[in-house]
């Protein structure tokens, strides 16, 4: 497998507090990679540096072998890094399909057209994406009235619309019911493997993490303290101490 995203010695401090310190890792195409750690460990800061929302103090982020450092989020997206947010961010005043169409219009650089009705553009492509995430039946509903789990599916379709090489998912299953969580991540894994997309996700639900991640990284106080296959991470004593705990509140005890 080839490396798609590599992160080298990434560091970021906020007002004297080291939020992320010397983090280095690489993600391969088609891989599902989880980034876990206590609240405030720097996961979101890390993500924000990967997609250009924050500028790191030092270090580099390479997509393929080109640096994407210093590019604004919209440029990073154009290079092929999609992102979903912890709290869904969709367009409430548009229908499900229009949400996808808007994304496609931006992707195909037709967003500044002022004459043709947007509704009539990229209809088939939008429907194909909705088909993949199982939202075709609800294409004409307003995003504002969708169930939360369905909204997450719309977000996934949006993230896939520009044919990304890398997908960053910030707590993709937060706020979902247990069964929905498993379904959504199974769907993500399936699509990632079919399209050879590298997926990097943060998550607090250990059932989801251990069911779907190929490899797991653990961040604590800004530093990577462990990286490896799920079983190795699960049995790592340091990880148990700072993050996993005794296993009483998730179904994943040490094996």
């Amino acid at each position: 497998m080839s490396t798609v995203l590599s992160v080298q010695n990434l560091s970021k401090a906020f007002g004297g507090v080291q939020a992320v310190e010397d983090v280095t890792f690489a993600v391969d195409a088609g891989e599902m990679r989880a980034l876990i750690g206590p609240n405030g460990a720097g996961k979101t800061t890390c993500f924000n540096m990967l997609n250009g929302q924050l500028k790191p103090d030092s270090g580099d982020v390479l997509l393929g072998n080109r640096s994407i450092l210093g590019l604004p989020p919209r440029e990073v997206w154009r290079r092929g890094v999609g992102r979903t947010f912890q709290i869904t961010a969709t367009y409430g005043s548009m229908t499900v399909r229009e949400n996808i169409q808007t994304t496609l219009l931006s992707h195909h650089r037709q967003i500044n057209r002022m004459w043709t009705a947007a509704r009539t553009l990229f209809v088939d492509e939008a429907m194909a994406l909705l088909e993949q995430v199982g939202m075709v039946n609800q294409y004409d509903r307003a995003c504002g009235v969708l169930a939360y789990g369905d909204l997450k599916r719309v977000e996934l379709a949006v993230a896939l619309a520009n044919d990304p090489q890398v997908l960053l998912m910030d707590e993709p299953t937060a706020g979902m019911a247990p069964r929905e969580r498993v379904d959504l991540m199974a769907l993500t894994a399936e699509i990632a493997s079919a399209r050879n997309i590298a997926v990097l996700f943060t998550e607090h639900d250990m059932d989801v993490v251990f069911a779907h991640a190929h490899r797991i990284m653990v961040l604590d106080r800004g530093r990577l303290i462990a990286e490896g296959a799920p079983n190795d991470v699960r049995n790592n004593e340091m990880v148990q101490e700072v993050y996993l705990g005794s296993g009483a509140v998730h179904g994943v005890g040490s094996a």
């Binding site: 206590p38 609240n39 937060a174 607090h204 005794s246 296993g247 509140v249 998730h250």
Partner: peptide, 8 residues
Amino acid sequence: GLAPVIIE
């Protein structure tokens, strides 16, 4: 949204 240790 909390880490397992914090949930404990």
